[in-house]
Design a protein around this nucleic acid. Sequence first.
DNA 1: TACATTATGTACTAACTAGAACTAATGTCA
DNA 2: TGACATTAGTTCTAGTTAGTACATAATGTA
Lengths: 151, 151
Amino acid sequence: MTQKTFMPVLYELVRTYQAFETYSAAHIRLLGLTASQFDIIATLGNTEGMSFKDLGEKTLITKGTLTGVVDRLEAKTLVRRVASPKDGRSQMVQLTKAGEKLFAKVFPAHLCHLEQVFSGLSQKNIENTASVLKQLRIAFSAASLNLEEAA
Amino acid sequence: MTQKTFMPVLYELVRTYQAFETYSAAHIRLLGLTASQFDIIATLGNTEGMSFKDLGEKTLITKGTLTGVVDRLEAKTLVRRVASPKDGRSQMVQLTKAGEKLFAKVFPAHLCHLEQVFSGLSQKNIENTASVLKQLRIAFSAASLNLEEAA
DNA sequence: TACATTATGTACTAACTAGAACTAATGTCA
DNA sequence: TGACATTAGTTCTAGTTAGTACATAATGTA
């Protein structure tokens, strides 16, 4: 490991993620949304809405950022904030009628766009890729935990 | 493929990249740099410098962004701009003495930090992960090319 | 119950981001 | 050579990003 044999896998991780992001975001932009806005619409679709906390965990958007993105979606009247009846600190975020309508349009369209990427890959290959990525993700989680414990 | 069986692999790609980014950036911040600044310092280390174009391709930073990041590194006197002798449009970016000194310090330190992630993974696993990621990246490139050709 | 701790969301900052419009320099080709 | 297209880098904009500090509300404990 002293040969830094892990560099190629990090290189590929970053390049592949970037390739996904570029491919995906370009299509989302044509639909009139940013990648973050799409993630939120997609996450809220077919739900009763959820708290900022849950929404942030699902979309990987940190809370400070999420406030701003939801502000802009609210300004477009695609989502609304509703005070949680259970917790006075918590705000629920829900799709509006317009948000649901947009979800019904853009979500399938974007899945279709993504699907084309995988037409040349076997089911087995796809499953295997997900599996090895998960192992790598767990290795990062473990390393992060080690740091916290040391602190 | 109509079952959207590719969703798990995209989920893992995004989560794993995010885990890497969070783990890596937290350490880089302790070293007094941002992730982008580190990428540039690391790319320029042990070179004679390179053009904005080459630097952008290696670091995956687009040119508009790169101007700003280099501005800030220049303000810290870690890099300098030098007009290309061959091409009047082109600027070369080089590490200054201070930049080289910082490179010599932070680059090994960060590699060491990253290395710990891979201590629990076999060499074979690491190589395999890089290989399947590359296949996925190529699938994204091919899909992007299809779009360009259609246009 | 009173106090301390924790959790939720917002405000603010510095920085990054891609894209588009722009300037200046280079390359093409008729 | 002259007109045209392309390329390199800058500028500008709207938006995202993480982190920190903060106000408010909920929870745990004495």
